[in-house]
Amino acid sequence: GPSAAAAAPVPAELVTAAGRTVPGVVSVMVGGKSGAGATGSGFAIDNEQHIVTNDHILARGGSGPVTVETSDGRRFPAEVVGREPGSDLAVLKVPASAGLPPLPLAKANSTRVGEPVLAVGSPLGLAGTVTAGIVSALNRQVRIGNGRHTAVQTDASINPGNSGGPLVNARGEVVGVNTAIATIDGNGSIGIGFAIPIDQVQQTADTIIGRGG
């Protein structure tokens, strides 16, 4: 219809990337009954059904039982393989029956300022939500938890519920893990999001999986 024609065009490759990414992204629910506890997002990184998410989601959930929900509404108990609070990353594992398609990871140092990206996750429990933007800056110094880290800055909307979800490029490769708690010297910013760069994510995930199986 005419209303669709009036909308800003979205590059076709981003539509394809979104379709490929959403099935590998899950909602993460920690502790609490009937919605109490903490929620966020995560995504599958390998065929063993390991899922990367933000550690602060587990911390806020009081380390209660972890459940993940797939984009098609199935729920699975998740085991916490390991946690790395210093970099705000954690790895979960779900049963093989979940059959989550792992998301491809971008090569280190391949991300460029200005390239289009999608943040995928479950803000406000709205599973499979996609927001689009560009890479606004690389190697941005931000505060995550008690430490300073370099992050990918984006203008794609990152809300608390899609924290832990992937930031993906137009090829559908993960360039970072969205983290809603990153700030610049204690100020949260509207319209600015930060993601933990993929090379750090891969290193941390490999270490946790190596330790915890």
Rank of each mutant, 00 (worst) to 15 (best):
86 G>K: 12
117 V>H: 03
20 R>A: 10
7 A>V: 11
42 G>V: 07
25 V>D: 03
75 R>H: 12
89 L>D: 03
74 R>D: 03
57 I>R: 00
101 P>R: 02
34 S>A: 10
59 A>H: 12
100 L>D: 00
83 R>H: 09
90 A>P: 07
65 P>E: 14
40 G>L: 02
18 A>Q: 03
87 S>C: 07
81 V>I: 15
98 A>E: 02
95 P>M: 04
20 R>P: 03
57 I>V: 15
101 P>D: 03
105 L>I: 00
112 R>C: 08
104 P>T: 06
32 G>W: 09
38 A>V: 14
31 G>P: 06
13 E>D: 15
98 A>I: 05
69 E>A: 07
10 V>G: 06
106 A>M: 06
76 F>I: 08
29 M>T: 08
111 T>N: 06
85 P>Y: 08
86 G>I: 00
63 S>F: 13
28 V>W: 00
9 P>V: 12
114 G>F: 05
63 S>G: 14
17 A>Y: 14
69 E>T: 10
96 A>H: 10
47 N>I: 10
48 E>K: 12
67 T>Q: 14
94 V>W: 01
88 D>V: 09
85 P>Q: 05
53 T>C: 05
23 P>T: 07
53 T>W: 04
64 G>R: 04
26 V>I: 04
67 T>F: 07
118 L>D: 07
110 S>V: 12
110 S>P: 11
7 A>D: 13
40 G>E: 01
